[in-house]
Design a protein around this nucleic acid. Structure first.
Lengths: 204, 204
DNA sequence: AAGTAATGACACTGTTTCGTATCATTCTAT
DNA sequence: ATAGAATGATACGAAACAGTGTCATTACTT
């Protein structure tokens, strides 16, 4: 899809050092993400994936078996990365909501969802992984904050709140129609969503 | 993808009658939908599309130029069909909401969204068409009913209402995780969404 | 230092699949 | 009727692409 362009002189030959080996795996997954996001799964070729990672096809096959294996490894890796960075526990419900809005609208996550949705028939388990480590975790964190800051009887509002945080804009995002919101728009949207459900600080 | 199986004896040879010609176009689009939904865009082959429509590749190329043209024609056709069937104007806000929930969760519309989302980079204009004739129209109809039945000051709730009608379940639908809701579940979900926004009949 | 594991370079195979060409056949138009 | 248009049947060309084989090269292991 992207034309070979300046193939940036491959690495030196021969067995890599232990450090190189470790670095290589993460780099392969990172560059594979870029290629898959740009071209989609079907239109991404192994030659292109290999060139992007500055690696030969042989190495890709040695590591991941085949194209589907590489794709799956990449999604899994990203899903764990997504779930890891939920660690900022100084959040209030408001800042958490705003952060979630920004996160779910990030180009990276949107493109990942586009990919996995488009290939959900071929890779159903990846869809489950993505949902568990993404939406499900976000909802759980919202529920936790609602319970602590607003009262346990309102915890059930976490799921509808998340739907509002997505909003119509996120549908347009998935369809590739809208750009991501600015930080200010994200915060305003989060506040509006909280207000609609009576979850604003003063209204609670 | 699906193996040839019992290729159901193609049509008679030669030029078709005017009626056959008209019927053929609609049938091609209908069967193409089925194939694309089953296999996705990339994995659907022209041979399969032709066989499904009981037509030869020649005809497909004569009609649509190429695979992308067929795909685009199919989505456009379906989008107009989607927007047409919004005609039942005896709805109350409640029944409209429930009907929208059922509609957006239908296997057909979900698969269509999966397709278009997955190919939105290749066919951006189809994404726009689908959104305009789907979500946008639903929201407009909700707004209209809210204005008439609940008061114009609440019209702005149409968009968040639609987001709630989608709900987390629709995200799982797009990812292929959940089955469609039953009619009862859809109605209950719609009522709950209306209640959350203070749009229930007694609460308004 | 010898042997083994991992990799780059690169050619190659086999398959898939798009798209076209050819010819026979049947309808439409005049 | 006769010419032309549309189509089925079928084969084929060309390109793309997944995946493999081979050999040279470099690092790791003992």
């Amino acid at each position: 899809m992207g034309g070979e362009q300046h193939v940036p002189a491959l690495r030196k030959r021969g067995r890599p050092t232990a450090d190189e080996r470790r670095a290589r795996e993460t780099e392969i997954l990172a560059t594979a993400l870029g290629v898959f996001l740009r071209c989609g799964y079907g239109a991404s070729t192994l030659d292109e994936l290999a060139a992007a990672a500055q690696v030969t096809k042989r190495t890709l096959y040695a590591y991941y078996g085949d194209k589907a294996g590489l794709f799956a490894a990449m999604v899994r890796d990203l899903a764990t990365a997504v779930s890891r960075d939920a660690a900022t526990d100084r959040d209030t419900l408001e800042t958490l909501a705003a952060r979630i809005v920004r996160r779910i609208h990030s180009d990276e996550l949107v493109a990942l969802h586009q990919l996995v949705i488009g290939e959900s028939a071929r890779f159903p388990e990846l869809a489950v992984i993505l949902h568990s480590s993404g939406d499900a975790r976000h909802i759980a964190r919202l529920a936790e904050h609602i319970r602590v800051e607003r009262g346990p009887e309102l915890e059930a509002l976490a799921e509808p709140l998340f739907s509002l945080l997505l909003g119509e804009r996120h549908r347009r995002r998935l369809l590739g129609i809208d750009p991501p919101p600015t930080a200010a728009q994200a915060a305003a949207h989060a506040d509006a969503a909280l207000a609609l459900l009576g979850l604003s600080r003063r209204a609670g």
